[in-house]
């Protein structure tokens, strides 16, 4: 346990600059685009007042003519989502790099990791936990960033031009956020569970490649196909959650899918531990 925590600390420590960089980019781009949009909108309204035009003449985005945080978010879809997509891409790439960086380079750290007087599953668990921590960390950062952006909104937009909005509307206003933050908790657990079991399956695929090298690439692809097939076999056979004529009740469908996920996770972890303990090669 102790050494697992040390390894986890090390993995997070190694990624700290990239993580901080992603957070900085996200904050800078989102806040920047909010400020730019709002300054422009506010200036336009002030100009309208100066020209004695009525303020209640709304636009498509702001029908009442007043500015709301939710509609602002709706208006800046692309620039708001861009840093999120970038973060997802970087984290996705790092799922591979978190292993491969130990093998590549002049000083191959994997020797040291495998020589540690600890169960090797701790290396696996530390890397998996680190990825999870990075994802949740970015998510938490985005969540904290929203109130900050709201404060900035309030600072720029004068009270008489402002219209109050609900937090849920703010999240719903953007295409990217509902994916990151599903409205109900079940959905949250489901989508993140799905994502994380995919991460574990990829981990096992990487370890297959690292253990058997060229032949391992084939094993890895076969393993990923098998995992994907297991997960999508029910939905593809028209037993979807929403299909009223499906053979299974929605609850049954949900239960069976859960069991399949559990099996994919269990087999990935078991195989990963075993490869790391017996088959891995430096």
């Amino acid at each position: 346990m102790n050494r697992y925590l040390k390894l986890l600390h090390m993995e997070i420590h190694r990624f700290r600059y990239i993580l901080a960089g992603l957070m900085a980019i996200t904050a800078a781009v989102q806040i920047g685009v909010i400020i730019r949009t709002l300054v422009r909108e506010v200036a336009k309204r002030k100009e309208d007042i100066l020209n004695h035009q009525s303020i209640d003449v709304g636009s498509a985005l702001f029908p009442s003519g007043k500015l709301s945080f939710a509609s602002t978010m709706f208006g800046i879809q692309f620039w708001f989502a861009l840093p999120i997509l970038l973060s997802i891409a970087v984290l996705g790439l790092y799922i591979f790099l978190i292993w491969y960086r130990d093998w590549f380079g002049r000083h191959t750290f994997v020797y040291r990791l495998l020589l540690l007087p600890t169960a090797r599953r701790n290396i696996y668990l530390a890397k998996a936990t680190a990825i999870l921590a990075f994802i949740l960390g970015m998510l938490a950062f985005q969540l904290l960033l929203l109130p900050v952006e709201n404060v900035i909104f309030n600072l720029i937009v004068p009270a008489e031009m402002r219209e109050a909005s609900y937090f849920a509307d703010v999240i719903a206003a953007n295409q990217a956020l509902p994916f990151l933050l599903p409205q109900n908790f079940d959905q949250f657990v489901f989508s993140y569970g799905l994502g994380f079991s995919a991460v574990l399956a990829v981990f096992t695929a990487i370890l297959l490649e690292r253990s058997y090298r060229r032949l391992g690439i084939l094993y890895a692809i076969l393993y990923l196909i098998a995992c994907a097939a297991a997960v999508i076999i029910l939905p593809v056979s028209n037993q979807t959650y929403f299909n009223p004529s499906a053979y299974l009740y929605p609850e049954e469908f949900f239960m069976i899918e859960m069991v399949i996920f559990a099996l994919v996770v269990a087999s990935s972890v078991w195989l990963g531990f075993r490869l790391l303990a017996k088959k891995i090669t430096v």
């Binding site: 050494r3 040390k6 090390m10 190694r14 380079g105 002049r106 000083h107 191959t108 750290f109 020797y111 040291r112 020589l115 540690l116 007087p117 600890t118």
Partner: peptide, 28 residues
Amino acid sequence: AFIPDHLTMPSYMKLSEGLRFMADFYQS
């Protein structure tokens, strides 16, 4: 103890950090 034919500490570490790492993980 195994001493491979190349270093096994990541390039970004200072030598003192490498020693610290070893002290953290090895009772010996």
